[in-house]
Design a protein around this nucleic acid. Structure first.
Lengths: 203, 203
DNA sequence: CTAATTTTGTACGATCTAGTACGTTAATCG
DNA sequence: CGATTAACGTACTAGATCGTACAAAATTAG
């Protein structure tokens, strides 16, 4: 059961970790975009050769798709972890937005925003993979938010006079709104301030 | 005073109208994105040659910047026209969102979304022009919305217990949220349904 | 009508990019 | 240890893209 790592892979072992590469690739695609980041450049930035990428992930579009799918899964988990952390609905929403602000920004220097909204979104028209990933992400996120509201925050929700679905839609909208603003290079401090302001709208 | 068209332009006259070209270019960039749309292709799609584009607008980035600046101006005017059209704050917000849904979609076929959120946003990290245009657009839009709320919808606003600025932020957030969803190829009908659902959150 | 001025279209060059072929290296299997 | 399997890195090809040079065309000024 635990011998998946001992599986003894028959040939020469990989010189990189797939997960690590995906995470670093997310950063590269975030800064340069899908089209603008050449596959050569990406490989160089990851410290490995282009044929290695082809071998492990396929062509550029497939690699990009893998990167954003991985990002989407992580984002969903992180968002829901913050949101279900307790406190009132308003507090949970605030935590969610402030955490997002931290993900969308860097300790210093201009924010680069969200990989999904910032770079996967534009590719949606041409590439089906990102479109599907993003659609799925939004749908499952809103479903998870709605379920959490309906479960943990039912009382708070009732006080607002809005349905759990409406509140979920509101939260995801505030999140997208933050993602849009984050792409404009704001500092982390300023982005946090906006997140806090948006959090006041929850409810 | 009206002789700007009679100015007698010294050399060979242009075979195209600048405004028309910009509007058609917006459509092309919307469908293909900035990087993916080659300047050759764009010129072909506009029915004129690449040197003509260079002569009239400069290089590809400058042309793109002109296109999104023109789009931003039009969008601001259109949005505010809808929003200041009367009725309650909720009704005005609903009109705004439904009008946006129509702009973001086509009568039939998949939506391509908003030029600013869909294609200018990703370019923000690399290009200063779009970043500036988009920042400015958001800032002036929110200021205009706030002023309109403070003026026309002051009573409705007071009933919500929120400041005009908060309500303006909420409206722009719902608009961005709609723009994100529109990029995923929804039909106009479905997008309108989402816009209507988002409109319920105004107030 | 001639000169000057600006747009137009073809054609071109320099550069970049995606994707691949191939020999080499590093590991396991028998 | 030899054979096998798989990843690695260099080098290469085909094609696309940006931007420009240059000559022809269209218009106004004198």
């Amino acid at each position: 059961m635990a011998d998946k790592t001992v599986k003894a892979a028959r040939g020469r072992p990989r010189a990189f970790d797939e997960g690590t590469v995906l995470r670093r690739a997310q950063q590269l695609f975030l800064e340069q975009g899908f089209e603008a980041a050449s596959y050569d450049e990406v490989a160089g930035g990851l410290g490995l050769s282009k044929p290695s990428l082809y071998n492990a992930f396929g062509d550029k579009a497939a690699f990009f798709e893998r990167a954003i799918a991985d990002y989407a899964h992580g984002a969903h988990a992180q968002i829901m972890a913050e949101f279900t952390g307790g406190g009132s609905l308003r507090e949970a929403g605030r935590r969610l937005l402030l955490a997002a602000a931290d993900v969308y920004s860097k300790p210093e220097g201009p924010s680069t925003g969200c990989l999904l909204v910032g770079t996967a979104l534009p590719a949606c028209v041409a590439l089906e993979g990102p479109r599907h990933t993003l659609s799925e992400f939004i749908a499952t996120l809103e479903a998870s938010l709605e379920a959490a509201i309906d479960g943990r925050y039912a009382k708070d929700a009732a006080r607002t006079g809005k349905t759990p679905r409406a509140l979920a839609l509101q939260l995801s909208s505030l999140l997208f709104s933050l993602a849009v603003r984050a792409r404009m290079g704001l500092s982390r401090r300023k982005l946090r301030a906006i997140a806090a302001e948006l959090a006041e709208l929850v409810g």
